[in-house]
Simulated scan of single mutants.
Amino acid sequence: MPRTAYFGPQGTFTEQAARGFDERAELVPLPTIPEAVAALRAGDVDFACVPIENSVEGAVSATMDTLAVAEPVVAVGEYVLPIRFSLLVRPGAVAADIKTVASHPHALAQVRTWLGRHLPDARQLAATSTAAAAVGVLDGEFDAAITAPVAATHYPLTVLAGDLADEPDAVTRFLLLTRPGKIPAPTGADRTSVIVIVAHRPGELAAMLTELALRGINLSRIESRPLRARFGEYRFYLDFDGHVSEARVGDALAALHRRSQEVRFLGSYPKADGAASVAAPGTLDSDYDASAAWIATLRGEEPG
């Protein structure tokens, strides 16, 4: 049975995502994202499930920073989870009793309007996770917690309100990480993720993106994070359609490797939405094979 570390404690959205990847897995809750990934790197678990981005609050910086340093890990799957929250209190409590409400900052941001309307006088406090906020309610540290619905199954608290979301279509994307090795086979609906550090000179970012555009590769996400030891310089996180086994993707990665200070491969894996990764005319594997054969004839080389 595989063991999967996840950003805990029990009762987080990440737990729900980890179960979505594999209901049979033994789940190991850890208090922070770096600790979950460290357990994977150390070989204590087979996988780690972490959030990577939210449709309302954007990228999860702790995950991005953790993926960028230390031993490489790669994503082998993604899971997109609709986000709805519950308001948990100690048994017997009512809305008038709530002076403080706690949650992860991303969660508080996604119910800010609801809290302003229903609990305008309650002080909002940050917790390390939605489930940690529930634990804080149990311990008397907070009066209420904004949590994932699954938290109500783990903690003896009362659901005072449910199905909370300022944005009804909000989702969070999660990655299932493992140590480098065999990657998932291409499905035709794949995503590739990399981290790139380019030279700090004019035009390098545009040149990086041009390597993808020239090969007809659809860039679906780009984020930047600072290089902590070099103020004013950044690493770029790229998600784009396609699989490393495709000629166009492999060729683009090779070009990025040639011209960049560093390229870290974060995996090629099936997209959660199943949308096909369509190659533009002239960028199919057969097109690359034909052009390579043509070059071989120019060089007087034997076919094959």
Rank of each mutant, 00 (worst) to 15 (best):
F236E: 07
I217W: 10
E233D: 12
Y155K: 09
I222F: 06
R123C: 05
L219E: 13
E223L: 12
H154C: 11
I195Y: 10
A165C: 06
R228P: 07
L212S: 06
D143Y: 05
F174A: 00
L138M: 14
P180G: 14
A131H: 02
G140Q: 09
A185L: 09
L209Q: 12
Y237L: 03
D143W: 07
H200C: 14
G162I: 01
G162S: 11
G140E: 03
G216H: 04
I146Q: 01
Y237D: 06
Y155M: 12
L157Q: 00
E141F: 14
A213K: 09
I183V: 10
Y234H: 13
R215A: 04
Y237S: 13
G216D: 01
A132T: 11
E141N: 15
G140H: 02
E204P: 04
L227E: 07
E211I: 09
D139N: 15
S193K: 10
E211V: 09
P156R: 09
L212N: 01
Y237G: 04
D239Y: 04
P184A: 11
L175Y: 11
P184R: 08
A161S: 11
L238C: 08
R201S: 04
R228Y: 08
G203Y: 10
L176H: 00
F240Y: 03
E204T: 15
R173G: 07
R221G: 07
A161D: 08
L238K: 00
T153G: 05
A152F: 03
V137T: 08
D190M: 15
A207V: 14
A161T: 00
K182C: 11
T210A: 09
G136T: 03
Y237Q: 14
L176Y: 00
D163V: 03
G136K: 05
I222D: 08
Y237V: 03
T210M: 14
R123E: 02
L175P: 10
L219R: 11
A145M: 02
R228T: 13
F240A: 10
E204F: 06
A152Q: 13
A206R: 09
A131P: 02
R230C: 01
R201A: 06
P202G: 05
I183D: 11
G232D: 14
